[in-house]
């Protein structure tokens, strides 16, 4: 009995933390390369994208910062990943000191239903994230000409 409990405990310890468990290894590696292993916190940025996408060829996406952090922690860059696209990178955006509100909007392609992840890097070395799980009914990328 005791041995069984030990095994169960070891299995629990071996599980990655909840935030990393959902992320595909390729994307997790890209995010780790970005943060250098610093913790990702929920908040500061908001990823706006429709939850139900009818056409994956052009999906409106925007990232906003509801409350601008103080100057010392200003947002330097925002990185967006689409977990199940052939190439999960979507866009990396960098904001200079003369930038207004950090954030952007654009139109993207989505290969299939998946989780989108946005990561913001702040000047104080902290990293913030937001993610959205969405459904795509007509996929992009793989259509014939």
């Amino acid at each position: 009995m005791r041995r069984r409990m030990l095994i169960a405990g070891a299995a629990l310890l071996a599980l990655p933390p909840a935030s990393a468990r959902a992320t595909k290894p390729e994307v997790a590696a890209a995010i780790r390369a970005l943060t250098g292993g610093a913790p990702l916190r929920q908040g500061r940025i908001k990823l706006d994208i429709p939850l139900l996408v009818e056409n994956g060829n052009a999906v409106a996406l925007s990232v906003t910062v509801p409350e601008a952090p103080p100057e010392a922690a200003r947002i330097r860059s925002i990185h967006i990943f689409a977990e199940s696209n052939p190439n999960p990178n979507v866009i990396n955006a960098f904001f200079g000191p003369r930038s207004g509100r950090p954030g952007l909007s654009t139109r993207i392609r989505l290969a299939t239903s998946q989780t989108m992840i946005a990561v913001a890097a702040c000047a104080d070395g902290s990293f913030w994230t937001d993610s959205v799980e969405l459904l795509v009914t007509l996929a992009a990328c793989l259509d014939e000409v």
Binding site: N57, A58, V59, S62, A82, N85, P86, N87, N89, V90, I91, N92, A93, F94, F95, G96, P97, R98, S99, G100, R101, G103, L104, S105, T106, R107, I108, R109, L110, A140, C141
Partner: peptide
């Protein structure tokens, strides 16, 4: 002359790229 915004695009950006950002 000063950089305000820079972006790296990947193939996931839709045809005829559209971009909005802000400047002070």
């Amino acid at each position: 002359g000063e950089e305000v915004f820079r972006a790296e695009f990947f193939p996931a950006i839709a045809a005829n790229p559209f971009l909005t950002f802000s400047v002070r």
